[in-house]
């Protein structure tokens, strides 16, 4: 069941950047960078799964940016993501040209150079924050990012996990750049060599690749939503509105009495059987959703409250 999830991850974070890089030969070596991509993805997964522990208790809830874990780790992570979004919008090559232009008119190390880059980063942070919140809400993966309550018995463990993930995430994050740093160690870019060294171009290239994958995912998602809305309007003509079933509620009085007040009032059992819509994409998405639920039930919500539901033990 996990296979679709793994395939999707490989497609989004490895195959697409690799394919794009093949069309963009002058960036860098694709295979070596892909290794870095995979390490970075592991780090990002840790970022979202591990230390953002308190999942939203209500769907659609907005992320609270003032929470402690966000301040400590999240801001830095979002800044890294902001660079990716910026590069996605402008393209990695154009960024290099801007930096080159800045180096030509404003000498390296000048305070103006720092201010310009700082303003750009703040702007990008805002964009990235909106994108992250949107996707977090849509995908249900938005962390509530609540401040750990030190009065509860589990609080020390939460704080330990927060700091442990901090120690795990950032070494992994920087480790992901090692392959590209190695590649660019001999790069013949004077302005880079004389300013920041070889780390910056590696960062740019790495972020540029991820941004390509990110943008492709966003576009695919939007296209999918359009098809979904279209398909739903067609289905509405073929299938009846479930609200019409409500008129038949008197047929269910026996069941209702049994489950609400009868011998099944304390413990209940339920079986549902429905048909899967015929479109292949529906079947594929259903398999994917079931895989995610299966994964969460095994590795995250395996001690009660599956999906925040307190009655599922």
């Amino acid at each position: 069941m996990l296979l679709p999830v793994i395939l999707l991850g490989v497609l989004v974070f490895w195959a697409i950047p690799w394919g794009v890089s093949r069309c963009w030969r002058d960036i860098t070596n694709a295979e070596d960078a892909a290794v870095g991509c995979l390490v970075l993805i592991a780090a990002v997964a840790l970022l979202f799964v591990n230390y953002m522990q308190d999942w939203a208790t209500r769907a659609g809830r907005r992320v609270n940016p003032s929470a402690w874990p966000f301040v400590v780790n999240g801001v830095a992570g979002m800044m890294a993501l902001a660079i990716k979004v910026f590069l996605a919008i402008l393209g990695a090559q154009l960024v290099l040209q801007i930096a080159d232009w800045l180096a030509g008119y404003v000498w390296p190390g000048c305070w103006i150079f720092g201010i310009v880059m700082g303003v750009i980063c703040i702007f990008l942070f805002a964009i990235t924050y909106v994108v992250a919140v949107y996707f977090g809400m849509v995908l249900g993966s938005a962390a509530a990012l609540k401040r750990a309550d030190r009065t509860t018995p589990e609080a020390p463990q939460k704080w330990f996990q927060t700091w442990a993930s901090f120690l795990v995430f950032w070494p992994l994050f920087f480790l992901s750049f090692v392959p590209l740093i190695t590649i660019f160690a001999g790069a013949d870019w004077d302005w880079l060599d004389t300013t920041i060294g070889t780390v910056w171009p590696a960062l740019v290239m790495m972020a540029g690749w991820f941004s390509m994958g990110l943008i492709v995912v966003i576009v695919l998602w939007l296209v999918f939503l359009m098809f979904h809305a279209l398909g739903q309007s067609l289905e509405n003509k073929r299938l009846a509105n479930p609200l019409r079933l409500y008129d038949e509620r008197s047929h269910n009085l026996d069941r209702w009495a049994r489950e609400e007040h009868g011998y099944m009032r304390c413990q209940n059992h339920y079986i549902s059987l429905t048909h899967v819509k015929s479109c292949f994409l529906r079947g594929w998405l259903l398999t994917l959703a079931l895989s995610v639920v299966n994964f969460l039930a095994r590795y995250k919500d395996n001690k009660g409250t599956l999906g925040g539901i307190p009655t599922i033990f």
Partner: peptide, 8 residues
Amino acid sequence: LMFVTNYS
């Protein structure tokens, strides 16, 4: 799709 559950 079959969904089977026990609940409180």
